[in-house]
């Protein structure tokens, strides 16, 4: 049907073209102009310099299994490579769990991993918690990452499930094929007060 050339048809013809265009323009202003560009946050150059100056990894997580199947997991705030094959770690927390489910949790201020000798040394007051309810604090703790064994040095105070006792040394061993055990040695002294059953915990 031919558009008869009256004014109305012509108007509709033009409107069909013009109106969508106007819509499009309105729509684009909505996106292009309306959004004001946010200020770009200034980059903390000081921190970047600190990070760039030294190699370090933040929130590292190391997990492995020892020869006898004990799983070892170690987390820390940061780890920095020190001399040959040694790494300094900050606020390390470690968990050693034997296949039978005996768990030793360790928390320290600082630590050092010697990758070659697979030794972990924890310093600062080290708190050691065993799954059996033995809690001890010791100045230094050495952990052997290949056997999952842990040795404390120096006099320690231990909160055991049956009372508080002191010992000259604490050692946690997970020997192959034998039951995992904790050995407190070099003189153990327990004071148990039956009257206050269990209050001494």
């Amino acid at each position: 049907m031919h558009a008869r050339d009256n004014a109305y048809s012509r108007f509709i013809g033009r409107a069909k073209v013009l109106l969508p265009l106007v819509g499009l323009v309105l729509l684009s202003t909505l996106f292009l102009i309306a959004r004001s560009p946010q200020g770009t946050g200034e980059i903390p150059f000081a921190e970047i310099e600190a990070i760039a100056r030294e190699q370090r990894v933040s929130a590292p997580r190391f997990a492995g299994t020892a020869e006898n199947g004990a799983s070892i997991a170690l987390e820390a705030a940061t780890v920095r490579p020190a001399a040959q094959g040694r790494y300094e770690i900050e606020t390390p927390t470690g968990v050693i769990e034997s296949p039978e489910g005996a768990r030793i949790e360790m928390r320290a201020a600082t630590g050092e991993v010697d990758a070659q000798r697979r030794q972990l040394r924890l310093d600062g007051p080290v708190t050691v918690v065993s799954s059996l309810g033995y809690r001890a604090e010791t100045p230094v703790l050495m952990a052997d990452l290949s056997t999952g064994g842990v040795v404390s040095s120096g006099e320690i105070e231990v909160d055991g499930p049956f009372g508080r006792f002191s010992a000259g040394e604490m050692r946690s061993e997970m020997p192959e094929g034998e039951a995992p055990r904790m050995v407190f040695s070099k003189g153990v002294r327990l004071l148990y007060d039956p009257a206050s059953q269990g209050e001494s915990r």
């Binding site: 034997s98 039978e100 059996l132 153990v188 327990l190 004071l191 148990y192 007060d193």
Partner: peptide, 13 residues
């Protein structure tokens, strides 16, 4: 109070 002293204390985990 009971006091127990010994050379070592072994805990079978």
């Amino acid at each position: 109070p009971v006091e127990i002293t010994a050379e070592s204390l072994n805990v079978d985990q």
